[in-house]
């Protein structure tokens, strides 16, 4: 409870902006995620519009708006939430590649548009088998090879199962990237420009701001978890594809629906991707059966370039061939 109250207090502080518009109180977007959600506002040192209480939009410096989230220090980020063991269940039958999880993640972690911690693959194992959309966060494995191979302890597994990267420890050897069989890790190949979070507010829990020459990846949003909220991808998904929860409690939820984890896995034949690799992921999948949407729906709204990335998938190959044939 105390933690929560503190939170609110600090959030209020953030809104005390000295604006010379003669309005004592202004209305502002309340968090960084809300701010960046608006595409027109994206960018670095530019001005941003906020709405005052009397219905006027005023311009303020974007740098003045700082997310007021509680910053967990590098040391504390090693501890993990006590008596928790987080897991994610992804229902492949419901995913239609709406990409809202990706967008929410990118907004929440101030990632550039091309950088996707959460990815949605178009999977098709063979030509004869069915294609399906496959959201892939970091698997936060219980036997994490990326952590094993790190020479300096920059990446670590916490008691609650979350695997984090400390940007201030990472030397950028990229060994973890080759060790991860799931391509979950990404390197900052150049100085990133999208971050508005100041360096002194760095926390491995958000992994913001990213630094050149270090590694970043999906963090399971511990900053949200601490506030009793779901990870950004889970709460952003319009289909309720992503369930998240504590498997000690044996409960997962997608925000709308709360289910016992063990029953969900039992009844829906849940599995873990690449179980044979032995890394023991914390992310479970429900097979893509009883689809709520035809696969093509996932291609809606994608531009030519984005569809091009699926060119090697047999399904897309066929689709393009038949199109060309006509």
């Amino acid at each position: 409870m105390e933690e929560k109250d503190e939170n609110k207090g600090s959030r209020r502080n953030f809104l005390k902006l000295g604006l010379g518009v003669g309005v004592t109180s202004i209305l502002a977007a309340t968090s960084a995620s809300l701010l960046t959600s608006n595409k027109a506002f994206a960018g670095n040192s530019e001005k941003i519009k906020v709405l005052t209480q009397d219905g006027k939009l005023v311009e303020v410096n974007k740098a003045d708006l700082v997310p007021a989230d509680q910053i967990v220090s590098r040391e504390d980020s090693h501890k993990g939430l006590p008596n928790r063991k987080f897991a994610m269940v992804i229902d492949l039958g419901k995913c239609k590649n709406a990409r809202k999880c990706i967008e929410a993640c990118q907004e929440g972690h101030q990632l550039p548009k091309e950088q996707e911690w959460m990815r949605v693959f178009l999977m098709q194992d063979t030509e004869k088998t069915a294609p399906y959309w496959f959201p892939r966060p970091c698997f936060h494995c219980d036997n994490p090879l990326c952590v094993s191979v790190c020479p300096v302890g920059a990446t670590y597994k916490r008691s609650d199962g979350i695997v984090l990267v400390d940007n201030e420890r990472c030397i950028g050897c990229k060994f973890c990237m080759t060790a991860c069989p799931f391509s979950a890790r990404q390197f900052h190949w150049k100085e990133p420009t999208t971050y508005t979070v100041p360096e002194e507010k760095y926390s491995p829990e958000t992994n913001m701001p990213g630094r050149e020459g270090t590694v970043g990846k999906c963090v399971f949003c511990p900053d949200k978890l601490r506030k009793g909220e779901l990870p950004r991808c889970a709460s952003a998904c319009p289909m309720g594809v992503i369930y998240f929860g504590d498997i000690i409690e044996d409960t997962v939820t997608n925000g709308d629906e709360t289910i016992r984890f063990s029953e969900l896995i039992k009844n829906r034949a849940g599995y873990r991707q690449f179980e044979e690799l032995g890394t023991e992921p914390s992310v479970y999948y429900l097979p893509p059966v009883d689809r709520q949407f035809p696969l093509e729906r996932g291609l809606d709204g994608l531009d030519e370039q984005q569809i091009k990335k699926y060119d090697n998938v047999p399904y897309i190959k066929n689709l393009k061939e038949t199109k060309d044939g006509i």
Binding site: R84, G228, E229, L230, F244, G245, D246, E249, T251, T253, G255, T258, I259, R260
Partner: peptide, 8 residues
Amino acid sequence: KRLYTNLK
């Protein structure tokens, strides 16, 4: 009562 939501 569960961590995020209530389980029915």
